[in-house]
């Protein structure tokens, strides 16, 4: 049986060409280089922003979370043991920040202090007002994604999103979630089974592809 190496099986749309550069920059940042840390911010801020956005569906909240993630990373980077795990480490900080965000939101809702409505649609109105058709398509897409993700368990949703929307490898996901690889695969397997049954979502994707 051939040796299993998941890093040889990269996510479908993301190449891992920056990994070496990341390791070098992380080593410098751990040693105290602010310039290296800023370069890491430049490299990963979009990934983290998207990761937060896929989970909050609000641009402003995703921006705040991204900001907090990098502040936390800056404060703790000297404690990072393995520079090659920087990306996983950063994503685990981001995941904790998202959890904190939802905890606070739940608390505010319980206390009746949450004044925010559905700012997902509001975001699109703000950002894409010039093209209403495009705007509508985007809204439709996110509604489909939301509906599909709602059908998954918390762990399935997390793993599916990390794998197929954030382009992380199985090993990276297992590092982030602190689960072993076979557990990650099992959840992914179940999530894919549900995705395969999600005919509306798949039809939407196919239609959009033909447009």
């Amino acid at each position: 049986m051939p040796q299993k190496n998941h890093e040889d099986n990269p996510p479908p749309t993301r190449s891992a060409t920056l990994s070496r550069q990341t390791v070098i920059l992380t080593e410098e940042a751990v040693a105290g280089s602010e310039t290296a840390f800023n370069s890491l911010v430049d490299l990963f801020q979009e990934d983290i922003f998207r990761m937060a956005y896929y989970r909050t569906l609000s641009r402003m909240d995703a921006e705040d979370i991204t900001q907090n993630v990098f502040i936390k990373a800056f404060k703790n980077i000297s404690r990072l043991q393995s520079p090659e795990r920087f990306k996983s480490w950063l994503f685990s900080i981001a995941l904790n920040q998202v959890r904190d965000f939802y905890r606070k939101k739940r608390l505010l809702t319980m206390l009746g202090l949450s004044g925010k409505g559905d700012d997902h649609e509001q975001d699109y109105e703000e950002e894409n007002a010039p093209d209403p058709l495009d705007n509508l398509m985007k809204q439709d897409f996110w509604k489909h994604v939301e509906l599909f993700l709602d059908k998954l368990s918390r762990m399935e949703r997390e793993i599916f999103t990390l794998r197929f929307m954030n382009h992380l490898g199985i090993r990276e996901i297992s590092n982030i979630l602190k689960k072993n690889e076979s557990t990650v695969k099992t959840h992914l397997y179940r999530a894919l089974g549900k995705f395969r049954k999600e005919s509306t979502m798949r039809q939407f994707l196919t239609e959009e592809k033909t447009l």
Binding site: Q45, F49, R50, E63, Q67, V69, F70, V145
Partner: peptide
Amino acid sequence: MAEDFAPQQRKRAF
């Protein structure tokens, strides 16, 4: 599509 349809980050990170 998720990448394309996600809004642009306006506020740059720390």
